[in-house]
Amino acid sequence: MSVFALLVALGREEHAAVTDGRWDDLAELNARREQVLAALPASAPPEALADLREAMRLQALSAAALKQGLADTASELRRVGTTRTAVAGYAAGTGVASARPRVSFNGVG
């Protein structure tokens, strides 16, 4: 398999990992991609053009899916933060001590 075909194969693996939410697989795939990129020649032969285009297409799809995954995660974190704030406010009105101690990272409070 040519180094250009390896880029396509890695692109497919990465896209599948991203769309399946297998975020932990991405570090290993990235390490493998770095090895393949290091093996690329200074210029690509004309017969590699189709593989390079496909690798670029897959990379764009993966980047879009990653962007959406980050947006979804940020939304979920905001939702969890809002829920926690609401629950803490409710608990404060019950007279029950908070189960979560306050932690300060700046030495105050």
Rank of each mutant, 00 (worst) to 15 (best):
V3W: 07
F4E: 01
F4I: 04
L7S: 01
V8T: 02
L10W: 04
E13F: 11
E14P: 03
E14R: 13
E14S: 07
H15W: 06
A16I: 08
T19P: 02
D20N: 11
R22H: 05
R22Y: 05
W23T: 14
W23H: 13
W23A: 15
L26I: 04
L26E: 10
N30W: 01
N30A: 14
N30L: 01
R32K: 03
R33D: 11
L37Q: 13
A38V: 04
A38D: 12
A39Y: 06
A42P: 15
A42W: 15
S43E: 14
L49T: 13
L49W: 00
A50D: 08
D51W: 02
D51P: 02
L52T: 09
R53T: 14
E54G: 08
R57S: 15
S62F: 02
A63Y: 01
K67C: 02
A71D: 12
D72E: 11
A74L: 12
L77D: 09
R78Y: 00
R79V: 03
T83S: 11
V87G: 15
A92N: 13
G93Y: 01
T94H: 08
A97V: 12
A99V: 00
A99P: 07
A99L: 00
R100F: 00
P101T: 07
P101R: 14
R102W: 00
V103W: 13
F105E: 14
N106G: 09
G107E: 05
G109T: 14
